[in-house]
Simulated scan of single mutants.
Amino acid sequence: MTNEPPHTTTALDADDEAAIRRIVQDVEDGFNRNEPALLGVHMARDAVVGNARGAWLEGRDAIDEANRVGLAGFLRDETAHYEVSGAAALAPDVAVAQKRAWSTRAAADAGEPPEMIALYVFVRRDGRWWITRRQNTLVG
């Protein structure tokens, strides 16, 4: 018996990390192109999202509807640049990733602090990764 806390994360293999990075890129591309279908294509049916406005969205249908409304309305002229700042496996079919976000790539390249951070939880189902949880937090 030990009192040492266990390590709960391990490095993802290169293929899994690349897949997760592609998913986050699709989310960015969907946002920047105002394409709600691309923005939500990797969300699991039972996903839960805490958005930057503090609202909780439960289930793919609610998330898709919020994406459609937001991209047609108050987010229509907004852009974003995302960088995955870390990804790790919690279990063979569970992974997490942290994302930093800016309004533009230029802001990130200029070394400005991120405007938002996010935590994603992914589950591998049917041979591919799905977003099951995401929490966005605006940085003051």
Rank of each mutant, 00 (worst) to 15 (best):
Arg128Cys: 11
Ala110Ile: 06
Trp129Ala: 05
Gln98Val: 14
Glu58Val: 11
Val24Asp: 13
Gln98Ser: 14
Ala62Met: 10
Glu115Ser: 12
Val96Pro: 05
Glu58Gly: 04
Pro36Phe: 01
Phe74Gln: 10
Leu12Pro: 05
Tyr120Asp: 12
His81Arg: 02
Gly30Tyr: 06
Phe31Ile: 00
His7Gly: 04
Glu115Cys: 07
His42Gly: 00
Asp16Ile: 10
Leu119His: 11
Gly70Asp: 01
Asp64Trp: 02
Ala72Tyr: 13
Ala44Cys: 12
Pro5Met: 15
Ala91Gly: 04
Ala107Asn: 01
Val49Gln: 11
Ala37Arg: 08
Asp13Ser: 03
Val49Lys: 12
Arg53Pro: 01
Ala37Lys: 14
Val94Cys: 12
Gln25Lys: 03
Asn34Phe: 11
Asp29Lys: 03
Asn32Thr: 00
Ala19Asn: 07
Ile20Lys: 08
Asp77His: 14
Asp126Ser: 13
Met43Trp: 05
Arg21Tyr: 07
Trp56Cys: 12
Ala89Arg: 15
Val41Phe: 02
Asp16Glu: 09
Ile117Phe: 04
Glu35Asp: 15
Arg124Ile: 04
Ile63Trp: 06
Asn32Gln: 01
Glu17Asp: 12
Ala66Cys: 06
Pro92Ser: 03
His81Asp: 15
Gly127Lys: 01
Gln98Lys: 05
Ala95Pro: 15
Phe31Val: 03
Val94Ala: 09
Val94Pro: 14
Ala110Pro: 00
Asn51Asp: 04
Val94Phe: 12
Asp93Cys: 07
Asp64Lys: 05
Ser85Trp: 05
Glu17Ala: 13
Thr8Gln: 11
Arg125Tyr: 03
Ala95Asn: 13
Val123Thr: 09
Thr79Gln: 12
Leu90His: 11
Arg60Thr: 08
Val123Met: 08
Phe74Tyr: 11
Thr9Val: 15
Gly70Ile: 07
Leu57Ser: 00
Arg21Phe: 03
Arg76Trp: 14
Ala91Tyr: 06
His7Val: 14
Thr104Gly: 00
Asp26Val: 02
Glu35Val: 06
Arg100Gly: 01
Val94Glu: 01
Pro114Met: 01
Phe122Ile: 13
Ala62Val: 13
Leu39Asn: 04
Glu28Ser: 00
Asp29Tyr: 08
Arg124Phe: 01
Ile20Asn: 02
Val94Met: 10
Gly59Phe: 03
Pro113His: 00
Trp129Ser: 04
Arg105Trp: 03
Asp15Phe: 10
Thr10Ser: 10
Ile23Arg: 05
Val24Tyr: 07
Arg22Phe: 11
Asp26Ile: 00
Pro5Asp: 12
Asp109Thr: 11
His7Thr: 10
Lys99Cys: 14
Leu119Asp: 10
Leu90Thr: 09
Val49His: 08
Val48Pro: 01
Asp29His: 06
Val24Trp: 01
Gly127Ala: 05
Ser103Met: 10
Asp26Gln: 06
Val41Asn: 06
Asn34Tyr: 08
Gly111Phe: 00
Val96Ser: 02
Gly54Arg: 04
Arg68His: 13
Arg45Ser: 11
Gly40Asp: 03
Gly70His: 10
Ala97Glu: 10
Thr8Trp: 09
Glu78Gln: 11
Glu78Val: 06
Ile20His: 10
Ala110Gln: 03
Pro92Leu: 06
His7Ile: 15
Leu12Lys: 09
Glu17Asn: 05
